[in-house]
Nucleic acid binder design. Structure first.
Lengths: 106, 106
DNA sequence: ACAATATGCAGGTAAATACCTGCATGTCAA
DNA sequence: TTGACATGCAGGTATTTACCTGCATATTGT
């Protein structure tokens, strides 16, 4: 996984909306996706290119149409690498801050 | 949670490194963090400001020092909102794509 | 008090980003 | 075949971003 591509791809509301749209109905065409995005088709294409580069979606051409499918794997890897790591220490991390605020460190 | 702030904050390798550094040793000062970042202190401060705005870290002043603490809550919310949602449909999503590739849709 | 230390604040710049318009290409259906 | 349709490609621009330098402020230890 290229973490930077995945996070950068997720760091834009339009691209997160695209993922949401595909989650509601997988395999939509570019045109269908654009109906729900308030921007030019060409702009949406650029967002989709980033999502593809991050491997968050895959596309298939069917005739003159381009179908879009979510790939959930990178999201799961984000979870493994970034969420669980901090999650495991959740209580102790908060404890550190609480202790500092209480001035127990003097 | 302001999802946009959180994702934008995570969308930069320097800021992710800051979180990693704090995960190794919570409560570090600005100076300590900067020793591990190949950039000017003022640049690091700007990154930290974004992490604070996203509520991913909290800071406490102790004398002339500024201590930094991770807040794991937004990361957990990212997980709840973004990972689990797609995770739940993981198998079915891949199935959609496989079916399309095999041409079962004709 | 004062020198060293830790951080804050104010611009300034170059690169990246997110849009757009205009036009080209390829596919379908009558 | 040809017109309608779906998408691709090539630029152009305004905004945001990620850096920097220079200087100001606040705290500590001697």
């Amino acid at each position: 996984m290229d973490a930077d591509k995945v996070f950068k791809a997720l760091g834009d509301p339009t691209r997160r909306k695209l993922l949401d749209l595909l989650c509601e109905k997988n395999g939509q065409t570019l045109g269908q996706l654009c109906e729900n995005l308030d921007m030019a088709r060409q702009s949406a294409t650029q967002h989709i290119d980033l999502l593809e580069a991050a491997n968050l979606i895959s596309t298939v051409k069917r005739g003159r149409e381009k179908l879009h499918f979510i790939n959930p794997v990178p999201l799961h890897e984000v979870y493994e690498r970034w969420v669980r790591k901090f999650e495991r220490q959740r209580l102790s991390l908060l404890h550190d801050l609480k202790q500092e605020l209480e001035g127990d460190n003097q």
